[in-house]
Design a protein around this nucleic acid. Structure first.
Length: 258
DNA sequence: ATGGTAGAGCATCTA
């Protein structure tokens, strides 16, 4: 079972790129972030014609997540569904596919350390951990994947000294991610590439960051122990980032055995 | 000193 994630930064602009990547990578599941459309404007019919069903939690202009899957999806849940007032920002979508609980996450960016958006980011991660603790199980096959907007370690950053303490790399953010891992999640790409540098998934559009190799690894696939035990391969596919009008993120995928 | 590009949508906001 091949499960992938890609922050496409507008499904309108990247609809062709997504179709092309589905054709070449042939994932069983593709989780999308930043689709930036309401549910009705997601090009579901197009991907249905390619053998993928869609679950969508979209909104106008910002955010929005969707799951494309070859198999049927059950127990589809949008948002935290924790009884408290739902977050109007559409960032979370869950579905059970082929016996695997799939959680598609577009985690907040945080703008800058100390800002209101940074506080929202930390609160969002705390709420996500509570959702896992109360609604999901680390002893079942589960994958939490998406754009986390956090680089876990110095090795995940092109210039760690320059980024130290900055948003995407700050201590509290990394502790929030470690808190998720401590619940029972393993970083699939790092597990298959221990100690490997220059493994990045995002490059800023500005300053020709991609051409200069100024990347960060902020998109992740985290699996519970019973699923991680089936991990066969995990990669970041840099090719789509070289396209003429690319997303600023590259797709990330993991393959699990039966 | 606080840059630079991209997307949405039409002045800025977000990343």
């Amino acid at each position: 079972m091949k499960i992938a994630t890609w922050n496409v930064n507008s499904i309108r602009v990247r609809a062709d790129a997504v179709a092309a990547w589905l054709e070449s990578a042939r994932p069983d599941v593709l989780c999308l972030q930043e689709i930036k459309v309401v549910d009705g404007d997601f090009p579901a019919a197009r991907y249905e014609g390619m053998g993928y069903r869609a679950a969508v939690s979209g909104q106008k202009t910002y955010n929005g997540v969707a799951i494309l899957a070859r198999d049927g999806m059950s127990d589809v849940v949008a948002g935290f569904a924790d009884g408290a007032e739902e977050d109007p920002q559409r960032r979370l979508l869950r579905a059970t596919i082929g016996g695997v609980r799939v959680i598609d996450a577009y985690c907040p960016n945080g703008e800058d350390v100390g800002t209101e958006k940074y506080a929202y980011k930390l609160a969002w991660f705390a709420r996500l951990l509570r959702v896992l603790e109360t609604q999901e199980s680390p002893s079942k096959p589960l994958v939490l994947l998406g754009d986390f907007n956090i680089a876990p370690e110095a090795i995940d950053v092109h210039a760690p000294d320059r980024w130290e303490g900055k948003v995407l790399c700050s201590g509290p953010e990394r502790e929030a991610l470690a808190g998720l891992r401590a619940w029972g999640l393993e970083d699939c790409v790092r597990a298959k590439h221990p100690g490997e540098p220059k493994l990045f998934s995002w490059w800023d559009y500005r300053l020709a960051a991609f051409q200069r190799g100024w990347g960060l690894r902020i998109d992740h696939i985290l699996a519970t122990a019973p699923l991680a035990a089936r991990l066969r391969a995990a990669e970041i596919d840099v090719e789509p980032r070289k396209a003429e009008r690319p997303s600023d993120h590259a797709p990330v995928w993991a393959e699990f055995g039966p």
